[in-house]
Every structure is written in structure tokens, then in C-alpha cells.
């Protein structure tokens, strides 16, 4: 994207969320089907803010959706009432999803960023 300098911008600015007009309101279009404009922060990346990352264990999850509602960064992906994973482009690693997960052992746990998810899943703790 070509950024304009401060003296090239007009006072007052409009940013577009989408490249084209959608027939429906965005609330009726899933993110994967939206024509995001490059000026939508959905297209940006904050994954490098993380020190720890949440890893998701499908086998333990009861799809309660606590992680979905309390994630500040819209990074818990839920479709058809099922939790399906973490959006690592937008997750900032706050750890709220792990704290609110009610299963025992938890279905989400924080691991160091450098650890592969498969390795993390192999190290999952036992029931307490």
C-alpha cells in the first residue's frame, strides 16, 4: 500500500472497510466472504505482539463459546456454534480465552510462540 504523507492528505479522511458495496450488511456476511479493503485492519497483522500463544485442543472442547465472547480481538473462530480455532494474525496473546475455558484440563492453553502446535498438543496436561 502506498502511504500518503501528512501534507498530502486532505483534512478529514474517509477510510473504506470494503472494496465494493456489499448487497447485505456485514453482519450477514462471514469474514471469509467479505471483500475487505486494504485499509481494513482485518488485513493487518498483530501476531508479533505475542510472547505466548493460545493452542486449541479440539478433543477436550465442549463448544461453550466463553472464549468466543470474551476474546477482545475477534480471534476465536466459531462457525455453526462450534469453536474451530484461533486466528493467529489477530490474536495478541492476552490469555483471556485460556482463563475462561471451563474444561478440565483446559481446551486452550498458552505455550511459547516458538513451540509447534503439534508438540504443544503432545504435552497436554492430564485432568487435575
Amino acid at each position: 500500500m502506498k502511504y500518503l504523507g501528512w501534507d498530502e492528505l486532505l483534512p478529514g479522511a474517509i477510510l473504506f472497510s470494503f472494496d465494493e458495496e456489499m448487497e447485505k450488511d456485514a453482519c450477514e456476511v462471514l469474514p471469509e466472504n467479505r471483500p475487505y479493503a486494504e485499509t481494513n485492519s482485518h488485513e493487518a497483522y498483530v501476531g508479533d505482539w505475542r510472547v505466548l500463544k493460545p493452542v486449541y485442543n479440539r478433543d477436550l472442547c465442549i463448544d461453550c463459546q466463553f472464549c468466543w465472547i470474551y476474546c477482545p480481538d475477534v480471534s476465536i473462530i466459531s462457525r455453526d456454534k462450534k469453536m474451530i480455532g484461533v486466528d493467529y494474525d489477530h490474536c495478541k496473546g492476552c490469555g483471556i480465552c485460556v482463563e475462561v475455558c471451563p474444561t478440565n484440563p483446559k481446551s486452550l492453553l498458552m505455550f511459547e510462540e516458538r513451540i509447534e502446535n503439534e508438540t504443544a498438543l503432545a504435552q497436554w496436561p492430564e485432568k487435575e
Binding site: A26, C27, E28, V29, L30, P31, N40, S41, H42, E43, A44, Y45, V46, W49, D63, C64, Q65, F66, W68, I69, P72, D73, V74, S75, S78, R79, D80, K81, M83, D87, D89, H90, C91, K92, G93, C94, G95, I96
Partner: peptide
């Protein structure tokens, strides 16, 4: 909450609010 989780957010990530 399950039903609520089918909502398609109109607020996007990669904003710059603090983690948490």
C-alpha cells in the same frame, strides 16, 4: 451463547488496543 456465537462481528481485530 452458542446461538450468539454465530454472529458475524462488525468490529475487526488488529486494532491497537492493549492485549486484554
Amino acid at each position: 451463547l452458542k446461538e450468539f456465537s454465530t454472529s458475524a462481528d462488525r468490529f475487526e481485530g488488529a486494532n491497537l488496543l492493549c492485549p486484554g
